[in-house]
Design a binder for these strands. Sequence first.
DNA 1: TGAGAACCGTAACGTTCGTTACGGTAAATT
DNA 2: AATTTACCGTAACGAACGTTACGGTTCTCA
Lengths: 209, 209
Amino acid sequence: MTIHIEPEALTNRQKAVLDATLAAMVAEGDALTMSSVSKRAACSKETLYKWFGDRDGLLTATVRWQASKVHAPVIDKARLDRPALAATLEQFAREWLTVISSETSIALNRMAVSHAASGKTSLGTIVLKNGRQAMGRRLEPVLEAADKAGLLNIPDIDSAFRTFFGLVLRDVQIRLLLGDKIKLGAAKITADAAEATQQFFALYGAGTN
Amino acid sequence: MTIHIEPEALTNRQKAVLDATLAAMVAEGDALTMSSVSKRAACSKETLYKWFGDRDGLLTATVRWQASKVHAPVIDKARLDRPALAATLEQFAREWLTVISSETSIALNRMAVSHAASGKTSLGTIVLKNGRQAMGRRLEPVLEAADKAGLLNIPDIDSAFRTFFGLVLRDVQIRLLLGDKIKLGAAKITADAAEATQQFFALYGAGTN
DNA sequence: TGAGAACCGTAACGTTCGTTACGGTAAATT
DNA sequence: AATTTACCGTAACGAACGTTACGGTTCTCA
C-alpha cells in the first residue's frame, strides 16, 4: 500500500529522510536499497515503511519532494519590450540548462525513465509535470503576451514553446541521461542560453518571417 | 565474464535469440529476466550463458545487434542545390523521428538509461554512438558541403548539427522515455520534419542572417 | 552407424533485497 | 512517576532471480 503525503504536510524529520533518499539516488542510482536509504538517513526501515508504505511510495514521495523544492522564478510582466523579453527568455534558458545538468535532475530523470520501463508511469508523469510541463506553464503566458504586444509572431504557442525547448536543450539531456560526460560550466550555459534565445528571436521575432 | 561477439559473426540462431531478447525488452522493460528471455527464445538458459557470458553480455549484444540493423541511408551528394538539400534534411528528420518514436528505440534507450544509472556506461555509450553520434557523422558532411557550396552559412558544424537535433526532436524523446503517450503518425512526422527543416534554413540559410 | 558435440527443458543453489518482526531507548502525555 | 507512543538498530523471513548443473534429445561428422 502506497501512502501519499502532500509535500506541505511533511515533518522536518520526514523531509530529512527524503533528502537522504535523494542523495542515495544520486550516489547509487536505481540500485538503491531500502537498507542503504535507512542507513544513510539514520532511520529504521520500519519507519520508512510506516511513513511511505513501500519502496515505490518512498520513491514517489522523494520525487514529489524534490519537485516541491523547485520554485518558479517570478516573471516580470510589467515592462514588456524587446530587451526585457530577451532577458527573460535567456534567464529561462539558463536556469533550465542548470537544472537539467544537475546531478539531482539526472538521477531523478533516470529513476523515472527506469520506472516507466517497468510499465508504471507514475514517476514519469510526476517528473514530466514538474519539469517540461511546469516550464511550459511558466513560459507560455510570456510568449502569448509578447505575441499580443507585437514583439513576437507566434502562430501556435505550444509549438513555439516546444521549439524553444529544443533550441535550449538540444542533445544535452539525452546525452547526460545516457552517461555522456559533458562539462557544462556557467560560462558555457550562459553562452548556450544566449544563442538559443537569439535563434528563437530569429524564428519568431516579429517581422523576421 | 562478458563475451563480445561482433554482430557480423553471429549465427542465425543467435540472431533469432537476440531478436527475442529485443522483443522481451519491449514487452517487459528492464524487468526482463533470463528465464523470460530463454522462454521467449525457446532456448535454454545454459545456452544464453555460453553465448553471452552473463546478463550484461546478453543486453550488450542485443543493443549492438539492433544497432547493426539500422542502415545509414545513402546521401545523394551528386546534385547539391537548395531543393535537394531541403529534401535531404527533411528525409533525415523524418527517419529520425520515426526511429526515435518506435517501441524498439524507446525500450533500448530506457534500458541504456537505467544501465547508466547503475554507474555502468557501456550500454549508454553504445546507444549514443549508434544514435546521436551516427546521425552526426552522416549529417555533418552534408552540412559542410552545403556550407562550401554557399547554400548554408554555418560557423560551427557541430553546433549546427546539435541545433538541428533540437529542432527535430524537441521534447519528443524525453516525453516518450518518461512514458508520455504521444501519437506520432506518419502525417505528424512529415509535418514536423518539414517545419524543422524550414526553421533550420531560417537560421542557417545563406543570406538569412 | 556410432560417438561426440550442441542444445533444450527443468531443477537446484546462493545471493540479494523488499518486507516484517522484535527488543531497547528516548520523548511525550497523563 | 507511570504509561504510552515513536523511533532506532538489527535480525529474520520469503520471494525473485542470476547462475550453475544435469538428464535427455537432436544434429554433425567421421
